[in-house]
Design a protein around this nucleic acid. Structure first.
Lengths: 117, 117
DNA sequence: CCGACATGCAACAAATCGGTTGCACATTAC
DNA sequence: GTAATGTGCAACCGATTTGTTGCATGTCGG
């Protein structure tokens, strides 16, 4: 499931761009570390689906996990959320501050409108 | 192409969760209103792909478009970005909680797995 | 009018996503 | 030890995403 391991800003937003994952994030924020099984209670989808979502979130650096006996507890990593917030700060609140633009993005200068394609 | 018209927060993040779209957003932020064709210069994908991305962005309320003669100019709507930022503010804890939590992921003392459900 | 430019539309195609189910394995409670 | 409980793995599915190409239409400048 999206095994980029790149951890770009886009990956971060992608991870947040799903209702179920967003719900997981808010629940982890409110309830601390929880297991996939615990998170699946009250969710509209199965435990396995939650597990996959947690893997996406972890891949984006938004959560970490720790084995605790027979269960695995997932916790939110707020630092990554800060990064997302900082990015939005940079492009929404204006200010010509040098924004931390995601590495690898195509940011070519205005090319001459000459030529095809 | 995701014709929800719901404009939820998740839709917003989804729209931002793609390298090409994020690039479009930053370019619109820096360069003001641009046409799909102009945006396609320097992009890794075709004009049509850019058009589709612009439709996704518009569906999320992030951009608006205006016909200008034979071209269509797309512009960023910062208000929607503010919404995303506000959401992140709300869940990214900031506030009084110590964000500088070293490395510990679990906040709960002993697991104390008692009979659940 | 003509030609260049910009957009609009539609049909594809391939990859990814979000989800399920079934079952094996590990750990804990009793 | 045995039964619960929690996890891990893999196959499979349908829908959506992301991209392409080809062509038609609209608009502007000589």
């Amino acid at each position: 499931m999206s095994r980029r391991a790149e951890r770009t800003i886009a990956d971060l937003f992608f991870a947040l761009g799903d209702d179920t994952r967003l719900s997981v994030v808010t629940r982890l924020r409110a309830g601390g570390a929880l297991s996939a099984t615990a998170l699946s209670y009250g969710a509209k989808v199965s435990r396995q689906a939650i597990v996959k979502h947690l893997q996406v979130l972890e891949g984006a650096g938004l959560v970490t996990h720790e084995r605790r006996g027979r269960e695995v507890l997932y916790a939110l990593d707020a630092r990554r959320l800060e990064e997302a917030r900082a990015f939005l700060d940079a492009i929404s609140a204006g200010r010509d501050r040098a924004i931390a633009r995601p590495r690898g993005l195509v940011e070519e200068p205005p090319p001459r409108p000459r030529g095809r394609r």
